[in-house]
Amino acid sequence: MNDEWLIYRGVGEPHDGIGALPGPPPWRDFDGGPAAEPADAAAGEGGGAAGAGGGQGPDAPDGNVARRLGAHRQAAEAHRPEPEELEAVNAALYLRRPLLVTGYPGTGKSTLAHAVAHELKLGRVLRWPVVSRTVLQEGLYRYDAIARLQDVQIAAGGRAGGASGGASGGSSGIGRYIRLGPLGTALLPTARPRVLLIDELDKSDIDLPNDLLNVLEEGEFTLPELERVADTEPEVRVLTDDGAKVTVRDGRVRCRAFPFIVLTSNGERDFPAALLRRCIQLKLGQPGEKRLATMVRAHLGEEAARLGADLIREFLSRSRTELVAADQLLNAIYLTHYAAPPTREDLADLLIQRLDRPR
């Protein structure tokens, strides 16, 4: 495999390869802006499209790295992902397309987003967990109309009683009641792409995959509440999913660097062709012995991988006929480290239960 074109190499060690990413194809070139530079975000200035205001900011270190990738991940860096995984990730980066990752639970679908963000130094992963009640607007933004109405009523009562100040009954201050969601934050016009994990899309209502189509294709969305006041208040400061403050102009958010989006699915449903053609698709199979040992080594250390070799082999044997997940193996190796036979084997059987057991 020719590695020269790879931006994400799966080496685990952070590097500045994202700077070598060529420009997007013309049909995926977005013009949102002006772009916020990292220095502006760190300083909390409002001159760019996104000035931080006390939150983590897009360039803050991801506090989930050790939990997601392993506290001993340096010991596992010799293992690289499979070629098809590297090719799919890089195709998504080059083409500015979402990556749809399908596989059984515990195959590393969600971890992939964190691995890319860590290696390419793209900051905190924005995570949008999907359930059956999830709707598109939750990912874009939330507007707390009830809190705003309550503040207006309190202010009106204060004025009636002779008090001054308080919240205004007009449009001023509307930004206090708006917070961008993970998808909305990912679409802010930043100089470098954010990483967004849309987790377990197959759990969603039947409408959500179709509702996502326009946003993923156009790289933008509007906030009607801010569009309505744009004549008198064209620039409004709102909170992001990071907890930072950004300026939204004329009630519209349009990306500049299309985010690296990972959509995960356990394969429990089919998606419409319109969504599939907009995504790069990757199917992850059950990890083999080498990958499982690397996973154990990354999370629990070299000794745990050596002492748990028998459990890894047993797990692989069972995975040929049963549905089991890699995190069950991690739980078993961690807990059995403190127990001796025969309790050790009993604990392993207790923790590695088949997930496709008839009910």
Rank of each mutant, 00 (worst) to 15 (best):
I280S: 01
C255G: 06
E227F: 03
R278W: 11
R277G: 05
S317N: 14
L276W: 11
G301A: 11
P272Y: 13
K290F: 02
R228I: 00
T240M: 05
A326K: 03
L300G: 07
P224Q: 04
A298L: 09
R306E: 15
I333C: 03
D310R: 12
R256Y: 13
R254L: 07
D270E: 15
V229W: 06
E322F: 05
V248C: 02
G308Y: 11
K290G: 02
M295T: 15
R269W: 09
L330M: 14
A305V: 13
D310K: 05
L329R: 03
E268M: 08
D231N: 12
K245Q: 13
T222N: 03
T240R: 03
V324P: 00
E289V: 02
L282H: 05
C255P: 09
E302G: 02
T294F: 00
E303V: 09
F221N: 03
E314G: 04
D241I: 01
A325E: 14
G267D: 03
A304T: 12
A305N: 09
A298G: 04
T247G: 07
S317A: 12
E268R: 15
F221W: 04
E314H: 12
E322S: 01
N266V: 08
I280R: 11
R277H: 14
L276P: 03
V229S: 08
V296P: 00
D241K: 05
V246L: 08
V229K: 04
T222H: 04
E268N: 11
H337Q: 15
A305G: 11
C255H: 12
R291Q: 07
Q286V: 07
A340S: 15
L307H: 15
N266G: 14
A305D: 12
V253A: 10
T336R: 00
R277K: 11
A309F: 02
F260D: 10
R252Q: 11
I312V: 14
T232D: 14
G308V: 11
A305K: 13
T264G: 08
I261P: 03
R256L: 15
A273I: 08
L263R: 05
R249C: 01
R306L: 13
L282A: 04
S319C: 03
T232L: 06
R320L: 01
V229F: 04
T321D: 06
L292G: 04
A293H: 06
T321M: 00
A304F: 11
Y334K: 14
V253F: 01
E235R: 15
V238P: 02
Y338N: 06
R320W: 00
L239D: 13
R278H: 09
V262C: 06
R249F: 01
R256D: 10
T336M: 02
Q328P: 02
L276M: 13
R252G: 00
F258C: 07
N331K: 12
A298C: 10
F271D: 12
Y334A: 15
Y338A: 15
F315R: 00
E322I: 01
F271K: 14
P272L: 10
I312R: 00
E225M: 05
T240K: 06
L275H: 09
P259V: 08
N266I: 06
V296E: 07
D241A: 15
T247P: 00
E289S: 07
N331R: 14
L307V: 06
P287T: 12
L284F: 00
